[in-house]
Design a protein around this nucleic acid. Structure first.
Length: 561
RNA sequence: UGGGGCGUAGCCAAGUGGUAAGGCAACGGGUUUUGAUCCCGUGAUUCGCAGGUUCGAUCCCUGCCGCCCCAGCCA
């Protein structure tokens, strides 16, 4: 168990854990069964990760199980592509549903029978009002609805009509099956909700077996009951549906009595998590795709280099309540740094190179210096880094006329090159535009490895690469996709988007050990941040994503002035 | 003006009758061959507001205020 997981384990339990514990203790349920029920009409995002961690986490904690169930009741919107992507994402997050992979479509026959049962019981009827007319009859939030003129059809007629629906006798929208509950209910979900609608579209799994499909309300609770789900955990916006969920459970001969519990969904600053907004980002071309590293999708986060364990830790830290919340992205980044600090090997890379020539180091000579792979983990070992007369250092690490608090390299100043030598800047070479293009320095051979035998100290340690040995690379720096904490997209996405969300640096230099960095594995570029090879990389074309920068107190000092 | 949910620090979040945990962020200080990590320290005379009950209220009662969700044959 990592330190991070220990922290999460020590956290006080949330209200759902309390409910489960009580239900198990009282014997109301023998063992826990939860489910994660995505609709395969889009990609999973970090909000789903919270639900996945909750449902699978509960099952693991209490020795129960968690089913993966696709809520595939609307073939007009759903696709196999999404089903496959969702399974990949859930697995990547570290969860296993074992044999328990289900689809609401597995239950279409049973659901159909239950619909007829309701008709026979006089609790459902075939509607032939149009969607528009139904809206008229439904009333408003403050006014009760009126009964449909078809509400009192005889059972036989309803049965006949419903069977005709199933047989394909009608076009979409011409008929619908409705529950007969209460058109005057304050809860609009109880005003004779639609149970079945006609959809003439092939279903990804059942193909053309059906042309009528159950609605979410008619499918979800019954699916839970069929699967023996004991605790059906969903987000707050479904709380209004609970009375309907319970109505079906009470009025149908279902094999079990699942119960629904609601928690508040995750919101994150500087991003949007609604499926609609995410689709729009992709379709309008604001990002390169669902897996663009700026996207809050699971595949985007994965490509960016966020470890699954960091996402799990984040989900554990945000808590589970019924309170509306907007989590600062700083917490997510903290979880990523916490884990990567522990695990990521250290390397040196220069993002914005400036040449540094050591005048008293022999031309043509080079040597290898030993560097520690992870100062917090001795078992990570060491590596050798080539050093020579001409190096590159970070442009930000030199100032010709530095302010008081800047203690990196400057004319006449001595600093340490990490794991190498002390160097002193003697001369600044500029081009015709006045830009600094080269630093002429001398080094002290006695400081090999980074320590002065005479005990003299130096204020800064810089990262560097040997010019002749370095490998060129492109590095992509990411900033939040949206300018504001809570994006205002009322004028469209364009105005809300951060124009600097992606900055591409094409003149970067990496130490040779980075030539074989593994995809999906992050490394720390010392003093800069965590980086991860991008999928766009190819042989000889190294591309890295910045997962998250290191904390930077100099940046704060500089910003204050 | 209907129904449902929620109000504890900048952001999360415990506590639910005995005198406000913890994390993130922020800000100080120490260590440091990463201005990183690590360590130490600093926050609520107060729990949306107003009354009431009580020796005692964030917690119980009453009223008020604020925010979110619901009028798809989407989920």
């Amino acid at each position: 168990m990592t330190e991070a997981e220990a922290t999460a384990a020590d956290a006080p339990s949330n209200f759902i854990q309390d409910i489960v514990r009580d239900d198990l203790a009282s014997g109301r349920v023998a063992s826990l069964v939860t489910r994660f029920p995505p609709e395969p009409n889009g990609y999973l995002h970090i909000g789903h990760a919270k639900s996945i961690c909750l449902n699978f986490g509960l099952a693991k904690e209490f020795g129960g199980r968690c089913n993966l169930r696709f809520d595939d009741t609307n073939p007009a919107k759903e696709e196999q592509e999404y089903i496959d992507a969702i399974m990949e994402d859930v697995r990547w997050l570290g969860f296993d549903w074992g044999e328990h992979l289900y689809h609401a479509s597995d239950y279409f026959a049973q659901l159909y029978d239950w619909a007829e049962y309701l008709i026979v019981e006089g609790k459902a009827y075939v509607e032939e009002l149009s969607a528009d007319e139904m809206r008229q009859y439904r009333g408003t939030l403050t006014e009760p609805g009126r009964n449909s003129p078809h509400r009192e059809r005889p059972v036989e007629e309803n049965l006949d009509l419903f069977r005709q629906m199933r047989a394909g006798a009608f076009k979409e929208g011409e008929r619908a099956l409705r529950a007969k509950i209460d058109m005057a209910s304050g809860n609009i979900n109880l005003r004779d909700p639609v149970l079945y609608r006609i959809v003439h579209a092939p279903h990804p799994r059942t193909r053309d077996t059906w042309c009528i499909y159950p609605t979410y309300d008619f499918a979800h609770g019954q699916s839970d009951a069929i699967e023996g789900v004991t605790h059906s955990v969903c987000t707050l916006e479904f709380a209004d549906h609970r009375p309907l969920y319970d109505w079906f459970i009470e009025n149908l001969p279902v094999p079990a009595r699942p119960r629904q519990f609601e928690f508040s969904r995750l919101n994150l600053t500087h991003t949007l998590l609604s499926k609609r907004a995410l689709v729009q980002l992709v379709e309008e071309g604001h990002v390169a795709g669902w897996d663009d590293p700026r996207m809050p999708t699971i595949c985007g986060l994965r490509r960016r280099g966020f470890p699954a364990a960091a996402i799990r830790e984040f989900c554990a830290r945000v808590g589970v309540t019924k309170q509306e919340n907007v989590i600062e992205t700083a917490l997510l980044e903290f979880c990523v740094r916490e884990l990567l600090n522990e695990q990521a090997p250290r390397r040196m890379a220069v993002l914005n190179p400036i040449r540094l020539v050591i005048e008293n180091y022999p031309e043509g000579q080079s040597e290898e210096l030993e560097a520690i792979n992870n100062p917090g983990d001795e078992s990570a070992g060491t590596r050798r880094v080539p050093f020579s007369r001409e190096l590159f250092i970070e442009r930000d690490d030199f100032m010709e006329d530095p302010p008081k608090k800047f203690f990196r390299l400057a004319p006449g100043r001595e600093v340490r090159l990490r794991y190498a030598y002390f160097v002193t800047c003697n001369e600044v070479v500029k081009d015709e535009t006045g830009e600094v293009v080269e630093l002429r320095c001398t080094y002290d051979p006695e400081t090999r490895g980074g320590n002065a035998p005479d005990g003299r100290k130096v204020k800064a340690t810089l990262h560097w690469v040997s010019a002749a040995h370095a490998i060129p690379a492109e590095i992509r720096l990411y900033e939040p996709l949206f300018r504001d904490e809570i994006p205002d997209i009322s004028e469209g996405l364009g105005n809300a988007i951060n124009p600097d969300s992606l900055k591409t640096l094409s003149n970067c230099r990496l130490e040779p050990a980075l030539a074989h960095a593994l995809a999906g594995t992050s490394v720390q570029f010392e003093r800069l941040g965590y980086f991860c090879p991008d999928a766009d990389s190819s042989d000889g074309n190294h591309i890295f994503n910045r997962v998250v920068p290191l904390r930077d107190s100099w940046a704060k000092i500089k910003a204050r002035g």
